[in-house]
Design a protein around this nucleic acid. Structure first.
Length: 491
RNA sequence: GGGCCGUUAGCUCAGUUGGCAGAGCACCUGGUUUUUAACCCGGUGGCCGCAGGUUCGAGUCCUGCACGGCCCA
């Protein structure tokens, strides 16, 4: 089992790779190191272009990947791509000398080079470096995808994200935006006195959501462990401990299906605020989304899937039970499980025999109401059985103080006035187990924490991947996750 | 889990009624000293996803499988 496994005799082989291998040998034979240790740069591509007025006629050192060659006899143009963007290079035989210019024949599209030269503007107006000296930094053995269409094949884009990032500027943009968004979220929360914390990913008991966990085994402790499905129960323990505003941004893992909006590991923001309730959390969500839109685009309006979405206005409030009652013509809370099942079937929703009441209600709501909620909305005041962790509604004990933010029909989070009565919490856990809910457990240690006193607390979870989908206008979660989960490639 | 669609050169894609495997880019040869999807001449490159079947003959028709996409559960 510990034997080192050598790969099968596979080595990629193609005509173009063979030619590049020959060039590699020629370079080595000519005393050129095809894989360098270091290159001292003075500027990034966009700095050269942005500071042209100052840099005009001055020497700069830039480096990047060769993306195109336009050979033109004893001169040639190239574009290189670096972390900031593209920059045009101009190579002249009369500047470089015959031998050095000839060696450019051994440099291919895809190779990484460094150059030193003088900044000028061509007669078509493009800021360009007139190369005085060039250095090969890394020889690429495989050719890049086509320059015009880029890499289209979605499977290959996910499996070889590095190639996608090299050739598809749109893809780079999405992941740069993702990083900015997460930075802005941290800034937003830090400014409001939230403390960022880290809680265990590897947990002896899972909870905080209804989902199948990934199970693993810790050899030294000889016990089963779970990858977390949620951070909730640990973060609320911290509120008990007196950290009054905490948040965590990290991976959760759910051993469930893969689709347009689900990846088995995904990034979740969870935050908890002492002395707050779910109304405060709604206000926080409204502020956060307004702040993100404004910071990213200078406007409260974004476009998602062909719809204009405005985060400048208060979000629509959609009461779970009332909305369903209007749609069904009867109060869903007055219906038995069997009647709910019938209502679902009447509405054209297939349900499996074992489906719980909570799942039935959720299914009915998402099919009949949620899919039609385009403008930002809070779905609120869910039936009590949908979650054991929320406080009963202060006006209607059959409901809980819970809401889900929904934009363009997509659920992007979940929030509660957190249940802080330890005796009721234990009861609610037990009820779930009695109702035979699939992933219900009684977390005694968490109940013990509550017995030390959890202040009134508002809690909020936001799916970062889905939020990034919204702000980058991507319709699949795989397009906002660098390496989305895929089946093992076939031979 | 079910339905539909896709898989052909390194990439993007054509491929007619079942009858010699194609184009553009990339690559190779030559030409070209301000080009930019550079251009011009000539050329190389194929496990047509995999395995079976039907047929004189299969990229094409049939069956199964793999991977992916969309929709449904």
């Amino acid at each position: 089992m510990d034997e080192a496994k050598l790969p099968d005799d596979f080595e990629p082989s193609s005509q173009q790779r063979e030619i590049r291998l020959q060039k590699l040998n020629q370079l080595r034979a000519g005393g050129i190191l095809p894989y360098a240790y270091h290159y001292r740069r003075t500027h990034l591509s966009q700095e050269v272009i942005g500071s042209f007025e100052e840099l005009n006629g001055k020497e700069v050192r830039v480096a990047g990947r060769v993306m195109s060659w336009r050979r033109h006899g004893r001169t040639r143009f190239a574009h290189i791509l670096d972390g900031a963007g593209r920059l045009q290079l101009y190579f002249r035989q009369d500047v470089l000398g015959t031998e050095n210019y000839e060696q450019l024949e051994l440099v291919d599209i895809g190779d990484i080079i460094g150059v030193a030269g003088e900044v000028f503007r061509t007669k078509t107006g493009e800021v360009t470096v007139n190369v005085r000296e060039w250095t090969l930094l890394s020889k690429a053995l495989l050719p890049l995808p086509e320059k015009f269409h880029g890499l289209r094949d979605v499977e290959q884009r996910y499996r070889q994200r590095y190639v996608d990032l090299i050739v598809n500027a749109d893809s780079r943009r999405v992941f740069e935006l993702r990083s900015r968004i997460i930075r802005l979220i941290r800034q937003f929360l830090d400014e409001r006195g939230f403390v960022e914390v880290e809680t265990p990913v590897l947990q002896p008991i899972y909870g905080g959501a209804a989902a199948r966990p990934f199970v693993t085994y810790y050899n030294v402790l000889e016990q089963e462990m779970f990858l977390r499905i949620s951070d909730e129960l640990y973060l609320k323990r911290l509120i008990v401990g007196g950290l009054e505003r905490v948040y965590e941004i990290g991976k959760d893992f759910r051993n469930e299906g893969l689709d347009r909006t689900h990846n088995p590991e995904f990034t979740q923001l969870e935050l908890y605020q002492a002395y707050a309730d779910y109304h405060d959390m709604m206000a926080l969500v409204e502020e956060l989304f307004r702040f993100l839109a404004q910071s990213l685009f200078g406007s409260t309006e974004i476009e998602y899937c062909g719809q204009r979405v405005d985060f400048g206005k208060p979000w629509q409030r959609v009461r779970f039970v009332e909305a369903l009652r209007e749609r069904l013509g009867v109060d869903p809370l007055a219906l038995s499980d069997e009647q709910l099942r019938t209502a679902a079937q009447t509405a054209g929703i297939e349900v499996k025999p074992g489906t719980t009441r909570a799942k039935l209600l959720d299914k009915l709501f998402s099919e009949l109401i949620q899919d039609r909620l385009i403008a930002p909305a809070f779905v609120l005041d869910h039936p009590k059985e949908t979650t054991p962790l929320a406080k009963p509604h202060r006006q209607d004990p059959r409901l809980v103080e819970r809401f889900e933010p929904v934009v363009c029909g997509m659920e992007i989070g979940n929030a509660f006035s957190e249940l802080n009565d330890p005796l009721e919490q234990r009861e609610r856990f037990i009820e779930g187990v009695k109702r035979n809910e699939e992933f219900a457990t009684v977390d005694e240690d968490y109940c013990t924490a509550l017995e030390y006193g959890l202040p009134p607390t508002g809690g909020l979870g936001i799916g970062i991947d889905r939020l990034v989908m919204l702000f980058t206008n991507q319709d699949s979660i795989r397009d906002v996750i660098l390496f989305p989960q895929l089946k093992k490639a076939s031979g």
